[in-house]
Amino acid sequence: MKIHKLITKTEELADLCSRLAKAEFVAVDTEFMRENTYWPELCLVQIADQNEAAAIDPLAQGLDMTPLLDLLTNNEDVLKIFHAGGQDVEIIYNLTGKTPHPIFDTQIAMMAISQSEQIGYANLVESWLGLTIDKGARFTDWSRRPLTDRQIEYAIGDVTHLAKIFPRMLKRLIKTGRGEWLDIEMESLADPENYRNDPSRAWRKIRAPSRNPQVLGRLKAIAGWRELEAQDKDIPRGRIMRDETLADLASNPPAKQAELSKVRGLSQAWSENEIGKRLMRTLRDAEPLPHDEMPAKTPRGAPLGKEGALVADLLKLLLKIRAREIDVAARLLTRSDELEALAAGVRNLPVLNGWRFEMFGRDALELVEGRLAFAVTDGKLQMTHIDDTADSMAETE
């Protein structure tokens, strides 16, 4: 494989992307910094097909990234391969307003062919290629220039290994017949709505303190305000205010600015500074949350009672058994909160649709409805369908 150490010129990048545009797939990775900023700072992009690989320096003076961004977001003929690519996709969306498509994530794919829940990149490489990744450059400051040869070699390795792993992984997926399972997962990963930064929706990511429309209205208002403050200052939102503090303010808003000094998580300065004034203004202007924006009533997180909790535990046991039987990550089939909702009577759930229903949901529903039981035979745990047992008894009679 031909390795281009570091591309810093637009013409070089355009030539590379022209060649890669003819490939069946490209492996992509990014290095970025976001510890001290609201927006992640893209510091390096690595890309490879089966013939060549390169690192691209987006911080290079005069470099136009358009050829690369066009390849990733506008070329539907080239499959884009990532590993745990959510943050990489977010960065590309922030730059272009589009997401890479079509897309394939090897971490998600591993869940369909093994019981690995969220396999890390180093473990992926070791399991498929038998190589040990040098983690020495993992926590480097990618914004510093010049980059060392070791940094560039480490970074390019992320995509050269991925370009070797993907064809092998694809063969296994084809053999198992589970490739179609991943279509929905990959489309979800590429959905631009997952990355659209809308301050008016920021409150939905915070644990709601109640279902009171006035409380939720204040939560929505100050969560949106925090996003705008953080964007304006380009600092992480948590440096403006932590989620817990937001929830406290929504539930117990102070009557005047001087009382902000008593709020957990805020300093004395908030009681008299300009940001404190803006916060108080936001709280005063907050409207009750409209009825059509109220979160749906679901049993998620609600007490199930002793019987319901027991059913949820049985469902989790069934999930472990089924995941082991078909060698798939339990997380790909469903999650604990969904099982608790099922135990509590909810039926409009992903696990009761499509391939998930065929692989697990049907048995889960039968367990909840009393048509599936566990039994121990010869020291091994087995599942017994009640209808089948009744039919067998009728035949013996």
Rank of each mutant, 00 (worst) to 15 (best):
K2E: 14
H4W: 14
K9W: 01
K9G: 08
E11T: 13
A14T: 01
D15E: 15
D15C: 12
C17P: 10
E35G: 12
N36V: 04
E41V: 06
E52I: 06
A54L: 00
P58W: 09
L59Y: 09
D64R: 11
M65Q: 05
T66K: 14
L68S: 08
L71A: 04
D77H: 15
V78S: 04
Q87L: 08
N94T: 00
L95S: 11
T99M: 07
T99W: 10
T106M: 03
Q107F: 03
S116Q: 14
E117D: 14
Q118K: 10
Q118E: 11
Y121E: 10
Y121M: 06
N123W: 10
N123R: 14
W128I: 01
K135F: 08
G136N: 12
S143R: 14
P146D: 11
I152V: 13
I152F: 02
G157A: 13
T160C: 04
R168Y: 01
L170K: 10
R172S: 06
W181A: 05
D183R: 11
E185L: 07
D191R: 00
E193W: 10
S200G: 09
S200D: 15
I206Q: 10
I206K: 07
A221S: 13
E229D: 00
K233W: 13
R237D: 08
R237P: 10
G238V: 01
E244P: 01
L246G: 05
A247W: 07
A247H: 08
P253C: 05
S261A: 15
R264H: 11
Q268K: 15
K277P: 08
R284Q: 13
A286H: 05
P288L: 03
P290E: 01
E293R: 14
K297V: 11
R300V: 08
P303A: 03
A323N: 11
I326L: 13
T334I: 00
S336V: 00
A341C: 15
A341E: 15
A344E: 07
V346D: 13
P350Y: 05
E369S: 07
E369R: 11
A375Y: 05
D378E: 15
L381W: 09
Q382C: 11
I386D: 08
D387W: 04
D388I: 08
A390V: 15
E395S: 12
T396S: 13
E397W: 13
